[in-house]
Design a protein around this nucleic acid. Structure first.
Lengths: 232, 232
DNA sequence: ACAAAAGTGTTAGTATTACACCCATGA
DNA sequence: TCATGGGTGTAATACTAACACTTTTGT
């Protein structure tokens, strides 16, 4: 005996807050909608979830269709399911956030025609966004603010080799305040999760900084014990 | 011009991990299913989300129908949307967790007949659960472990007036390890979010402990600054 | 008087903060 | 030689961790 599933015409979607870091500025990827509702408005990139795909997969597809990138750091953020969040009916959306290393090679272009354009925009002065996307963005920023101090997600925004100042710039951009250079360096180096390279920055017109890599192996050791919050 | 929403036969549900604390033991509320699939198996309480209700509301309804309680501490946990998580089709579920004060007045009884029984079960030795509910439970436990040290959710599990030892017991049950009594008290009192009452425990056959209340007003002040994780 | 839990301080070690100058490099 | 960011140490303070005995109460 089987009880059939109830039949609802329900729709769910994924929306992605895709963070990038460029010229010392934290940005997210926005699209300009080409379809109603909110035609010509800015919005977070998103897709309807096919009934034959997992939601994580749908989020990865959103990212891939826009940037051509795969295997990006991406996490589920929150699910937004208020009745009135979509003007044309009931749409529940699962929001994700992703961190990507920007480089000149990455070209963003909408793959389908639901979006006219796609572009990076600084988080500091975002325009109005369609639906509840401003709220989704705010929640994603809070999330990475918390997370950045617990877990080494800052590295995901940088090239493989980076200087300590670049790393500090990522922290400052996300936390939105200045940090003390000496203390920052001391702390980062003490964690023991950076590997110093014997390579220096090139092409700068001042003293070249030492390059570092993130050492995933050491990280696993160091940060698993950090799970104890009340420490003792 | 309107683009109609795509029509999928999609189903979503909510599932709730409802924590309670009784006799020094952390428990969750389980039901015994009365319908296939997984008939006669244990599961987390859950409901299909009506197409005319918000998801938060659906979660509150789940809790209310089972316990008669409203206005309970409840937060969204995570959304589970793998293709194969439900044997009869595509069901995306939004998981919530709740913390409730147990008291003899609370009677749990299933309101609909999808469940035969409902009962509290210690988290330490849960039976096998239907669907991916074991995974959902594990994720909820991790979540409250992290959260308990950041935010005063422990109080939600205790009566309004409680002793420091009872509070410590909640921490120990959730974190699953012993804490030092003197350090625990020092730290809790230093936060300044407890109000000492001039009332003592009653009906115990040993020295009666002082009762405390959680002071929500002071909390708001103290913990908003804790949002800075890299402190300086 | 005894059983049971309440209540209480100190010390050593570690982490955090605040703070300012010289160095190396390329233009 | 100058402009630019790289790189470095110390002292004061706050927090954390380890640790054991006396007090109160009811039976």
């Amino acid at each position: 005996m089987q009880t059939p599933l109830p039949k609802f015409d329900s729709v769910f979607s994924v929306d992605c807050v895709i963070f990038g870091f460029e010229e010392g500025v934290l940005k997210i990827l926005l699209i300009e909608r080409n379809e109603p509702p909110f035609k010509d408005c800015y919005a977070l990139p998103g897709l309807f979830v096919g009934h034959d795909e997992g939601i994580d997969y749908a989020a990865e597809r959103t990212l891939y269709e826009l940037t051509g990138l795969r295997d990006i750091y991406m996490e589920q953020l929150y699910t937004f399911g208020d009745l009135d969040r979509h003007p044309e009916g009931r749409v529940i959306t699962v929001a994700y956030y992703a961190l990507i290393r920007l480089s000149s090679k990455i070209e963003v272009r909408p793959h389908s025609n639901y979006a006219k354009t796609a572009f990076w925009h600084p988080v500091a002065d975002l325009p109005q966004l369609a639906f509840d996307h401003t709220l989704i963005f705010q929640k994603s920023l809070e999330k990475i603010r918390r997370k950045i101090s617990d877990q080494p997600i800052a590295f995901e925004l940088l090239p493989e080799k980076f200087t300590l100042t670049q790393l500090q710039n990522v922290y400052e951009a996300i936390l939105n305040r200045k940090l003390d250079k000496r203390n920052f360096r001391k702390k980062m180096l003490n964690y023991g999760i950076l590997k110093e390279l014997d390579e220096k920055q090139r092409g700068v017109s001042y003293r070249a900084a030492t390059l570092y890599k993130f050492d995933r192996r050491k990280y696993a050791k160091v940060f698993q014990k950090e799970l104890s919050f009340i420490k003792e």
